[in-house]
Amino acid sequence: MMYVTPENTATGQDRFVDHSSWFKYSSPQTFFPLAGKLVPWFAVAALLLAAAGLYIGFFVAPTDSQQGEAYRIIFIHVPAAWMSMFIYVVMAFWAGVGLTFNTRLSGMMASALAPTGALFTFLALWSGSLWGKPTWGTWWVWEARLTSELILLFLYFGFMALQAAIDDPRRADKAGAVLALTGVINIPIIYFSVQWWNTLHQGASVSLKSAPTMAATMFTGMLVMVLALWMYSIAASLMRVRCIILERERDSQWVAEYMSSHK
């Protein structure tokens, strides 16, 4: 016997009832206003922390005896590099949640995070090369961390290009999830193989790790900058996820009401 029913709940097998406390915000409709309320707070926090971090980095931290003032770029470079890798992991986490539990919002979160991650990867590469010129006398060295960042940038591009090529958002989310999970397994392998390749070919002569020993103020500045980038990432991805929600749900009643009340 075959039964076809128009509702999912015919057997009561649905694991997630809409109004249970945990999954309440996994519905785009309830998440949308919440995200809207949170964005300004995170944005302001990001601004304040970035101002403080840059002040510490550029005015308070001491000049380095070997590298002079040029080293100060690490206040941007290192936090951006950290964030770029971290965001990929978070993105893969949301993608995996979306694939396992079939929650639409998780896939949207993953797509919202990708551009921010790519931005930080690009920032890390750019600042790395700006640092390279005065320090090593060349814009680009095939140094382990820069090379890994470059490959990470390709991984972000791949994720975004795949999602852009797929018209059906459900397929885009799922396909992106499989790619992100494959990527996240590969990232440590890529990182270590690049590091290994680097030591084999050049020795450890050039490395961003040859940064001066950290003074306490430098460490503080770096930490504050990391926090600032965290707040920025959250604010930016929440804003982006709000746009994605509106676009995907544009046929629904609540979006129509929202749009007419915000004319």
Binding site: M2, P6, E7, N8, Q13
Partner: peptide, 19 residues
Amino acid sequence: ILCGLLSPVCGMVRWGGGD
């Protein structure tokens, strides 16, 4: 959808007792 190649946006297909 009846074959299980395509998942419906909402609704389900059961065979015997199971999804």
